[in-house]
């Protein structure tokens, strides 16, 4: 595939993946959009804080965050997953809103849940959590909430 030439590609259980860095991300996505990947099915982030030893192909530096974008080519009946390693120190990616307007809600969700900022996003606010919420709930260093129990510690 011409659009992914020069990028590190992988195969995850038979599913085609390609790795990008925050700097090459937008360029790759533009090339893929021109290469019939006209639909962006899904965009989600993963926080690999507790799993730094995960396997990535040679040449890819594993970072704390990873954004996985699942693209769909309706013309070729093909899927492709773009994985971008996003460092914890600078969790910023360019927004895909201009390429696929449908990523607007997905990027807002990734921002809300992981605190990854998407530069150029038209309305980067929390989407699922209340506006005044502290923290980003799907990060691994964020505890699962509990309902306070009235009589705990009685045993």
């Amino acid at each position: 595939m011409a659009a992914t030439d020069g990028y590190i590609t992988g195969d995850s259980r038979g599913q085609a993946t390609v790795f990008a860095t925050p700097s090459t991300y937008l360029k790759l996505m533009k090339a893929l959009l021109d290469d019939t990947f006209t639909t962006c099915s899904d965009l989600c982030a993963v926080d690999y804080l507790d799993f730094p030893q995960r396997a990535v192909p040679a040449g890819v530096t594993a970072e704390r965050f990873e954004v996985a974008v699942n693209l769909l080519s309706i013309a070729r009946h093909e899927r492709l997953r773009v994985r971008v390693e996003v460092p914890a120190a600078d969790p910023v990616l360019p927004s895909l809103f201009d390429l696929w307007p449908g990523t607007e809600a997905m990027e807002r969700e990734a921002y809300d849940m992981f605190g990854i900022a998407f530069e150029g996003h038209p309305d980067l606010t929390r989407i699922l959590m209340p506006e005044d919420w502290d923290g980003h709930p799907l990060r691994k260093d964020y505890e699962i909430g509990r309902i306070p129990v009235q009589f705990k510690g009685v045993s």
């Binding site: 849940m113 929390r126 989407i127 699922l128 959590m129 209340p130 709930p137 799907l138 964020y142 699962i144 909430g145």
Partner: peptide, 12 residues
């Protein structure tokens, strides 16, 4: 505007 039924199922 959504989020009124958010129950953190992905976290759970």
């Amino acid at each position: 505007i959504i989020g009124y039924l958010h129950t953190g199922m992905e976290k759970q």
